[in-house]
Simulated assay, not measured.
Amino acid sequence: MDRLATLLSHFAFSADTFHQGSFCGLSGYPGDTQVGHVHLLRAGRLRFEGPGGQASVVEEPSLILLVRPQAHRLSAYEDDQAELVCATLNFIGGPHNPLTAALPDVLISPLSALTGLQASTDWLFAEAESDECGRALVLNRLFELMVIQLLRQLLSDGSLGAGMLAGLADKRLARALVAMHDAPAQNWSVEALATLAGMSRASFAAHFRAVVGDTPGDYLAGWRVGLAQKRIREGRPLALVADEVGYQSPSALARVFRRRTGMSPSEWREGKI
């Protein structure tokens, strides 16, 4: 059972490296673009100010990840001797999707705590220093690999308290979640999902709500709407989208879509494309 394969196939992303080397001064990111950001502090000291005024001083090699568009600022003095490698993250299904929604607004972690990323970050830092042909392309692919490895580690550690990734880190709930991810059009019942999890219906429903933060039915509806948004972005007809994500008609999808987003599919499309 691959807990990430379907997620990453539906909500693939690409990285675009925009800085490598020493950093001094102030850089602001207004959060009004459709990309996330990842900053790797290789050495020195860095000041980070995140959304809502969150402020941190980072004093050891660290990862700073803002997977959704978030206003933030980085600053360093010359004496801080900060060295950074930075990239944007562009999700094909848009920056607001079930995968990005499962991650915190800001994730800051020392690299020493992310042992599963060591090989890729070592390679990334070495590549940033080099002047080999194709360096930018290699850096982009290494950032993408690093984020996938981060997702792996988050699942392995079970360090997220609630949400989809917390559910995927739970061995019993993961079977039900992967089944919904793989076959969203299936008419899933709580009984069928509980059987996959090896739990009673009542125990499964309570445990799912406690860990994931939604009822199984609400989670499935959210997953279906997330997939529908991606397909609508791709220009697919609404009737086809409704069938692909498990609704008998476009109007049935539209009702759930409006309940989840506050907009009809056509209103959402006009605002996003």
Score class of each variant (00 low, 15 high):
2 D>G: 09
3 R>E: 05
5 A>E: 09
10 H>N: 05
13 F>M: 06
18 F>Y: 15
33 T>K: 06
35 V>I: 09
38 V>Y: 05
54 Q>S: 10
54 Q>D: 07
56 S>Y: 14
59 E>R: 15
64 I>K: 14
67 V>S: 12
68 R>W: 00
68 R>D: 00
70 Q>M: 00
71 A>G: 10
72 H>A: 05
75 S>G: 03
79 D>P: 13
83 E>N: 11
86 C>Q: 12
92 I>D: 14
95 P>E: 14
96 H>W: 11
98 P>M: 00
99 L>V: 11
111 L>S: 13
111 L>E: 04
112 S>R: 14
112 S>N: 10
117 L>A: 14
119 A>G: 07
121 T>D: 07
121 T>I: 15
131 D>F: 13
139 L>C: 10
146 M>H: 10
147 V>W: 04
147 V>K: 07
148 I>C: 11
154 L>S: 12
156 S>N: 08
156 S>T: 11
157 D>F: 03
160 L>C: 08
161 G>W: 01
170 D>P: 04
174 A>T: 02
174 A>M: 04
179 A>G: 02
179 A>H: 03
180 M>F: 01
184 P>Q: 01
184 P>D: 01
189 S>C: 01
190 V>N: 13
192 A>P: 08
193 L>V: 02
194 A>D: 08
197 A>S: 12
205 A>L: 12
206 A>F: 11
207 H>P: 14
208 F>D: 07
212 V>N: 14
213 G>F: 05
232 I>A: 05
235 G>Q: 04
237 P>K: 14
241 V>M: 08
243 D>V: 09
244 E>W: 07
250 P>R: 11
255 R>G: 10
255 R>K: 14
257 F>I: 05
258 R>M: 08
258 R>D: 15
260 R>T: 12
266 S>I: 09
